[in-house]
Design a protein around this nucleic acid. Structure first.
Length: 640
RNA sequence: GCCGACAUAGCUCAGCGGUAGAGCAACUGAUUCGUAAUCAGUAGGUCCGCGGUUCAAAUCCGCGUGUCGGCACCA
């Protein structure tokens, strides 16, 4: 006699075990048609499953966000069936729903290519049109393994073998085809609808491990209706338009070429942007009590051996050797050992702590070729690095200060929100558990005080200490770690850094490794995408274009440009023999924020016609007033 | 590094066995014009590199390099 509690609080009693389908029908024919699946006491179930005991039930219909995940998961199953129908002998593995869609990994000698997708998609539409019901079956582990092994599905058999003993093993059938799956699924393949699209093929390692065979992955996107799908596809197109690699070319900011893979050639406008950002951060750091240093590029391997980097990262270090010299030098992959060398000059006192040592440090790492991505992931980069030498008691207050600084900086660049990840102790680590307890505790406490919420990355900390990662998202939805703060008890020990305590004894400082941008290259890439090249005035590499209407205004235009330049603005003049429409268009396309139009009239009254990027209106201002206005507007946020 | 795709003028791309093309940009000339494209002309290419197949290769095949999409990696 199960009593079913519904979301509105009402309770319905049934005579015996009852399926979701029956409950929905009892409530009304509309719900019976719309209900795709249900939540039973918070867990998602197939609607066809029987409920034999009292429970709260909530039905999932197409309107619910939960339906999206069901649709995507079901679509992945249909993809697998279609692939096995078209390419017999292909092995199935896993096919989860992901953000915006789904994928399925197949075991196959010949990988799929984009050319295969139309045929697969057509087959999928057939399966969906056939409106085949899903059936859930519970299996014994050994039987399930035997079932898949008999069909040559060794990946599935391995998955079942590795499932925890407590797990109920379920198989879902759709017609003759079936797959190992935890479920739940919707009622029929027809519930998927038609709003899906296979998007790309890719290679992916079995179980995400590079020592395993590579599988052939097919990605797709799936939505509740065509409108949602179209909106998503449109959004992807828009995002591609703001890709930093495209805008970098269009705005003539930088390029990369074969002879210096993974290194950036900054062009004048890009370098202007870089220097503006650098100057801003330098002011922020000085105001926050940091001292800037500069340390060597080439450092003897002995120092890297001592720090432990040689052993761990030797393969991704660039080595420099000189004929007839014994020593081996390495291009520094990071700055910390160098900063410790500065710290160690002379005897340090506890009174000097916390000591905040900053460097815009040029570093080189031989990143794997497949990791390179525009200017976001390069082999030669500049970290906005700093190390805070402090006592253990200072970890929390210093972290709070850092989070405040980082938040303020991100905000000045238009990032109101960012994700924070907390990575705690890895399996292989240095230091005792007590030390780790204290370090993790200190970071967590700092997060609470600073009011930042984080997601936990268990076991992802560095071997020397826990860390916070600050993640920004690029235009195409990819996440990039920019900021970081890492607690380090190991480096001071290895490199023998110490200070004199108030009791006149010697103690090891704690080092906090921290960065806000991570690397200038990455941050600038994200910045370009954030603004799609339409930078706020203070960042724009060209802030004003002075464009003439007639050549009689040339002399005046040059004078205007000269005065703007003297006021500290980045100016170009356009005296070319073109119509004003063409000039406006040209400078608008390159995202120049302000165009000052001057013709005979302006030259006579010593005024300018100010046109803002994207605006239709113009404003005629006296020259002096326009200069004062633009100069104020162009101030960096920290100088306002 | 692994899987796949791609590499043609400064840029975006077409051509896919038979003497290398377009638009934009550039350059020259004319035009002096009031807020997103004035007109005409000119010039521009080891078709990524090296090999091979062929009477003939940008086009087909192999190797290399790079880029792109993923995976793995990211001190």
């Amino acid at each position: 006699m199960p009593a079913i509690t519904l979301p509105d609080g009402s309770v319905r009693a049934f005579d015996g075990a009852v399926t979701g389908t029956e409950i929905a029908a009892a409530i009304g024919p509309g719900l019976a048609r719309a209900a795709l699946a249900m939540e039973v006491d918070g867990a998602e179930w197939d609607i066809t499953r029987e409920i034999s005991e009292d429970a709260s039930v909530k039905f999932i219909t197409r309107k619910d966000d939960a339906a999206l995940e069901l649709i995507r998961h079901d679509t992945a199953h249909v993809l697998a069936e279609a692939v096995q129908a078209l390419y017999p002998g292909t092995q199935v593995t896993i096919g989860p729903a992901i953000e915006n869609g789904f994928y399925y990994d197949f075991g196959r000698n010949e990988p799929f290519t984009p050319d295969d997708l139309p045929a697969i998609e057509a087959k999928m539409r057939e399966i969906i049109a056939a409106n085949i019901p899903y059936h859930r079956e519970v299996w014994e582990r050994a039987d399930a393994i035997a079932l898949f092994e008999a069909r040559g599905e060794r990946f599935k058999a391995e998955l079942i073998r590795d499932l925890p003993g407590t797990e109920t093993i379920t198989i879902y059938r759709q017609g003759d085809w079936f797959d190992l799956c935890r479920g739940p699924h919707m009622r029929t393949t027809g519930d998927i609808g038609g709003a899906f699209k296979l998007t790309k093929t890719a290679g992916a390692y079995w179980r995400g491990d590079h020592r395993n065979p590579m599988l052939s992955r097919i990605y797709g996107t799936a939505w509740r209706d065509q409108k949602e799908l179209d909106a998503y596809l449109h959004q992807i197109e828009e995002a591609e338009r703001r890709d930093h690699r495209r805008i970098g070319k269009e705005m003539d900011l930088f390029h990369i070429q074969e002879e210096a893979v993974g290194s950036v050639f900054w062009h004048p406008k890009g370098w202007k942007l870089y220097r503006t950002v650098e100057a801003y951060l330098r002011r922020r750091l000085e105001a926050a009590g940091y001292e800037e240093v500069k340390t060597p590029q080439l450092v003897d391997r002995k120092l890297w051996e001592q720090s432990g980097h040689w052993e761990k990262f030797r393969k991704s270090m660039f080595i420099a050797e000189v004929v007839d010299e014994e020593s081996t030098l390495a291009l520094k992959p990071m700055n910390c050992p160098c900063h410790v060398q500065i710290f160690k000059q002379g005897l340090r006192s506890y009174r000097q702590l916390p000591l905040r040592m900053a460097e815009f440090g040029s570093c080189h790492r031989f990143e794997p070729s497949g990791a390179l991505h525009g200017i976001m992931r390069v082999r030669a980069f500049t970290q906005d690095d700093a190390h805070i030498f402090c006592t253990e008691a200072q970890i929390t207050p210093e972290t709070v200060k850092f989070v405040a600084l980082l938040s303020a900086v991100y905000k000045d660049f238009g990032f109101e929100s960012f994700a924070v990840k907390f990575s705690d102790r890895p399996d292989v680590r240095a230091g005792s558990d007590e030390v780790w307890d204290r370090a993790e505790g200190a970071l967590k406490e700092a997060c609470e005080i600073a009011g930042v919420s984080y997601t936990l990355n268990p076991g992802e900390g560095a071997f020397y200490g826990p860390k916070l990662e600050f993640v920004l998202r690029d235009a195409i939805g990819r996440d990039w770690q920019c900021g970081t703060l890492q607690v380090d008890f190991v480096m001071p020990e290895r490199l023998d850094a110490e200070y004199v305590t108030s009791e006149s004894s010697r103690a090891r400082p704690v080092m906090l490794h921290r960065a806000i941008f991570g690397s200038f290259e990455r941050f600038l890439g994200i910045l370009i995408e954030q603004y799609a090249g339409r930078f706020p005035l203070w960042l724009a590499p060209v802030q004003v274009a002075v464009a003439t209407i007639v050549s009689d205004a040339d002399d005046y235009a040059l004078e205007v440009a000269g005065l703007l330049q003297a006021a500290g603005l980045n100016v170009v003049t356009d005296l070319s023999n073109q119509k004003i429409n063409a000039k406006i268009r040209e400078h608008s396309i390159t995202h120049v924020p302000n165009i000052l139009v001057v013709g005979r009239k302006e030259a006579e009254d010593r005024s300018v016609a100010l046109r803002r990027l994207g605006g239709a209106a113009q404003e005629v201002l006296p020259l002096e007033q326009a200069i004062a206005l633009l100069r104020t507007e162009a101030l960096a946020p920290d100088l306002r």
